[in-house]
Amino acid sequence: MVDSTTVTVLLLGDSGCGKTTFLSRLKAPKPLTENIQELEISLLKDHDQPFIYDVRFSKKSFRVEVYDTASPNQHWSSLRPDLVILAYDISDRTTLDSLKGWRSEITRYFQSGSGERIPVMMLGLKRDLRTENDQIIYPQEACRIAQELHCDRYAECSAVTGELIAEAFEDIAKMAAMTTIESGAQSEGGCTII
Rank of each mutant, 00 (worst) to 15 (best):
R80L: 02
E38K: 14
I136N: 11
S42E: 03
Q186S: 08
K45Y: 03
T8G: 05
E163I: 09
D152N: 14
R108N: 02
C191S: 13
W102K: 04
N133Q: 03
D171W: 09
A146C: 02
A159P: 15
T20W: 01
L83I: 03
T95Q: 01
K126G: 12
D152C: 07
T179Y: 03
V160F: 06
T180C: 08
A166G: 15
A173F: 11
T69R: 04
H47R: 14
N35F: 09
L23V: 14
S183T: 08
E40A: 07
S61C: 05
G190R: 14
L11R: 05
L83C: 01
Q135F: 10
F110P: 00
E170P: 15
G189E: 12
E163R: 06
V66T: 11
G184P: 08
V55R: 06
T192Y: 07
E182K: 15
G190L: 10
R153I: 03
I194R: 11
E167Y: 08
S61V: 04
A70F: 01
K19L: 08
V2P: 07
K45H: 11
A168W: 05
A159N: 07
K100F: 05
V160Q: 11
Y88F: 15
F57E: 05
Y109M: 01
F57Y: 08
S91Y: 02
E141Y: 10
T33Y: 06
E34I: 06
E163D: 15
T94Y: 04
E148N: 05
I136E: 14
N35I: 02
M178A: 06
C191A: 05
S58R: 08
I193Q: 01
C157G: 12
S4V: 09
Q74C: 12
V160H: 08
L123P: 15
I137L: 05
N35S: 15
T94N: 02
E182G: 07
I41K: 07
D89G: 12
I85R: 01
L83V: 00
K27A: 08
E132H: 13
A70W: 01
A177F: 06
I172G: 10
I36D: 11
L79N: 03
A87H: 01
L39K: 10
T21K: 03
R103L: 00
G162E: 08
D97H: 07
L149P: 13
E167T: 10
T180K: 06
I193F: 04
T20P: 15
T95I: 00
T192V: 10
I136K: 15
A87C: 12
A146G: 11
W76N: 02
T20L: 01
K45I: 04
D14T: 05
L83G: 07
V2S: 09
V7E: 14
S4C: 13
R56V: 13
K60V: 12
W76Q: 07
L86G: 03
I165M: 14
G189K: 09
D3L: 12
T21E: 11
A87W: 00
L86N: 09
F169Y: 13
F110S: 00
L12S: 04
